[in-house]
């Protein structure tokens, strides 16, 4: 219980630190957002008026306090360029990116576990050698390039989906998911090969340990020893890796959304960065950071549930 409280407290501190860092780093950049928003129509009076309206003439700490207080009500401020609330601007895109990331994770687990277990059990068989070599190759293909290859293969040659024909989940959930399957595949491919490799390596290392050899020598069934002992212990590093991968998958979705023109968080982050729409950038970075921190926390807890030795 003390451990849980301590972890929750550190998470809270980290999130506060990130929010402060993001907010203050954007308020020290030279240049007045009011001027860039007015563009060519800027006159000194207009600038002063807009600066006041946007609250930019007040002390930075006061604005930070207001920003944080607003977040607790789901209010992230107003976008400079879209002239709407950041929260209403982002809500649909958050869900889109979330669907994409979840699909990628499900794909990763669904493919890598069976393949990894097969490679570990039948190591050095012909299929294992082939799969391991293929794995090495796939690991070297960046997700945006595999995305382009997937577009060529499934979109152009096989015509399984229309590239660029994204449908929002609000319109048709099934079509949305079936479109997002392909970008999710592009994100998942390198992760799948990494998990397969890790699972195989740790399982083989574990299978060499004395207790496993003892279990075999006592006449236990090979299969039972593998699943009950070897696999259970080999899962610990795999779970840690999956937890860290979640952050990577979210970051990877920023790039892959661009490949498949999916209007998610990544796309609006990029347009907001080039359009200097700081409230939107701040909100997205904070949201992504929160997702990363919370997934790390979940891994820590899972870790303890799986391995009682770690409870110190």
């Amino acid at each position: 219980m003390k451990y849980v409280l301590k972890k929750l407290l550190t998470t809270l501190i980290t999130l506060t630190a990130v929010s402060a860092l993001v907010f203050f780093s954007f308020s020290v950049i030279p240049g007045n957002p009011a001027i860039s928003r007015l563009g060519t129509e800027a006159t000194p009076e207009k600038i002063e008026k807009l600066t006041h309206e946007m609250g930019l003439d007040r002390p930075v700490f006061e604005r930070y306090g207001e920003w944080v207080a607003g977040i607790f009500h789901g209010d992230f401020g107003r976008s400079y360029s879209y002239n709407t609330d950041v929260s209403s601007l982002l809500s649909e895109k958050i869900v889109t990116t979330l669907i994409l990331s979840l699909l990628a994770i499900v794909l990763t687990v669904a493919v890598s576990f069976p393949v990894g277990i097969y490679c570990a059990r039948k190591s050095d068989s012909k299929l294992d050698v082939f799969l391991t070599s293929l794995n090495q190759l796939i690991m070297a293909v960046p997700s945006f390039f595999s995305g382009i290859l997937i577009t060529l293969l499934f979109g152009f040659a096989l015509r399984l989906f229309t590239p660029g024909g994204f449908v929002s989940y609000k319109v048709d959930l099934v079509r949305c998911v079936s479109y997002l399957f392909f970008p999710a595949l592009a994100i998942a491919l390198p992760k799948i090969s990494m998990v397969v490799k890790l699972l195989k390596d740790t399982a083989l290392k574990e299978a060499d340990k004395d207790y496993v050899v003892t279990a075999y020598s006592r006449g236990n069934a090979t299969k039972a020893v593998f699943y009950k002992h070897v696999l259970k212990n080999a899962m610990i590093p795999v779970i840690t890796f999956l937890g860290m991968t979640f952050a990577d998958i979210i970051a990877g979705s920023i790039i892959v959304e661009q490949v498949f023109s999916v209007p998610g968080l990544g796309r609006i982050l990029l347009t907001s960065i080039s359009g200097r729409d700081y409230p939107v950038v701040e909100a997205i970075i904070l949201l992504l950071a929160a997702a990363v921190v919370i997934s790390n926390l979940t891994v820590d807890f899972l870790y303890r549930a799986f391995d009682s030795r770690i409870r110190v």
């Binding site: 980290t14 780093s25 952050a247 970051a251 990877g252 960065i273």
Partner: peptide, 18 residues
Amino acid sequence: AVLAFPSVLLALLIIGLY
């Protein structure tokens, strides 16, 4: 805290600033 942050995201933040 920095390590937990994907490097692409961190780089995007810095590029957004500068």
